[in-house]
Design a protein around this nucleic acid. Sequence first.
DNA 1: AATGTAGTCAACCGCAGGCAT
DNA 2: CATGCCTGCGGTTGACTACAT
Length: 279
Amino acid sequence: MGEGPLGGWGRQEVNGWRKGPWTSQEDKLLVEHVRQHGEGRWNSVSKLAGLKRSGKSCRLRWVNYLRPDLKRGKITPQEESIIVQLHALWGNRWSTIARSLPGRTDNEIKNYWRTHFKKGKPSKNIERARARFLKQRREMMQTQQQQQQSLGGQLGGEDQNQDGGGCSSAGTTADVDDRGSAVDGAGLAPTVAAEAGHQHQHHRDLIMHDDAMMEMDLIMCPMSCALLHGPAAGMQGRTGSCCGSTASDEYGSSEEDGATWGSLWNLEGVVVDDAGAAW
DNA sequence: AATGTAGTCAACCGCAGGCAT
DNA sequence: CATGCCTGCGGTTGACTACAT
């Protein structure tokens, strides 16, 4: 959008800080400053660069607009799929999602999500991503069943919590509430989320190359696990999801979000036919 | 052509976590 | 250990633009 001519922010000054749209002159100053001093120390930027902007504002401008590695232009269908799937994984952790999409900012993704999915109107790409996801889920269920059958013969009553299907499990029942509603948000969310962050950091760092969707399958593990245990495994609420990720820990905050997720990821009512196509 | 509505984007605010003192 | 500052994050707002009526 560039800098709005002089939008309604009014270019006021509050406590000596300028607010509202940035001018090209300010941009230039900020870029020059970062070039010389690097990122960080935003609070000193105003003094050093001669900007009447708060550190916060400078940082935001840089991160969301001036950074040279920013990718301009529309979100591609592939990126869209990635966003959807990562959102399934991480919820509204836009910065985390953004890290997996080079050149995209959390703000951009957040805005994109709001405008595209908030109202429960998933695009074709979303539907495709979802279908792929469901297919994967179905396959994993089959695999797991087979494994259980073969293991069952050998191990008798071994606690299934131990297998985890490749995931480290903090618990078995997924806290992915398919209606998108919060599953006792007060409970485990932060802890589990932190765990998830650690466990999948390396995955997140890997993804988003040409074969992004392949890589995506890697990180989908936790989600898949969660879904495997999903509704059928009971929605008692608090749990540690398979890999510690909680897709739903934040959704409950908004009814709208819940509705959106209901429409997107409500697997409870989804019929997965033999071809793997859902609904 | 004028008006209304929805979509998009940039920027703000408040809060929380991390770190230094 | 307590406190204060800085940074980063997520949510929200408001203006502009595009499209529909």
